[in-house]
């Protein structure tokens, strides 16, 4: 009879890993950040490029979802105009907690080069923002680095405690 010996204590032998709930929840959350496709303007094209073949966003577990109900992170990619402002608020409210917002590009951060009557001077006037990416347009690498920083931020939180909803006011 063949002896099948498994050394359960050796590295890789044990099919069980011990960790805290906090860590496992945060691990899951941070590595499956589903992003809302919110391409508003030029930055949206770079967001698409980061999802496409060369930059391959899927390896971060980030998949673009078209519905805010399925999304964890809203990437505000582009110019937010006053006419559109109402909708960003609606979409943000439709996302489930916990939710994060990345403001991509100088238009979304501060209004950018469009210092005019029609643009909202920074989307943080409407919704709370976790991460600002500078650039016009930020490169796909910047977006991916930003997502990694967001993952780090998520891991630093306590998942077990009910997270306090972020508030603008």
């Amino acid at each position: 009879m063949a002896q099948h010996k498994v050394n359960y204590t050796q590295d890789g032998g044990l099919p069980v890993a011990l960790t805290s709930i906090d860590k496992i929840v945060n691990w899951g959350r941070s590595n499956s950040l589903w992003a809302l496709t919110y391409g508003l303007a030029c930055c949206g094209i770079e967001m698409m490029a980061s999802g496409a073949s060369r930059f391959d966003f899927d390896r971060f577990g980030t998949i673009f979802r078209a519905s805010p109900r399925q999304a964890d992170v809203m990437i505000v990619a582009g110019t937010l105009t006053k006419k559109h402002a109402e909708f960003i608020k609606r979409l943000y409210d439709q996302m489930t907690e916990p939710r994060w917002v990345i403001s991509m590009g100088s238009c979304a951060n501060t209004g950018g080069m469009f210092n005019t009557y029609a643009t909202v001077q920074g989307c943080d006037r409407i919704i709370p923002v976790d991460l600002y990416l500078p650039g016009c347009a930020p490169r796909p690498e910047t977006l991916q680095y930003g997502v990694m920083l967001l993952q780090k931020k998520i891991r630093a939180n306590h998942a077990s405690k009910a997270q306090k909803a972020k508030r603008l006011m």
Partner: peptide, 11 residues
């Protein structure tokens, strides 16, 4: 349309 009107002509 107009959700991306950024006022370029004015600029």
């Amino acid at each position: 349309v107009g959700y991306l009107h950024r006022g370029m002509e004015k600029m």
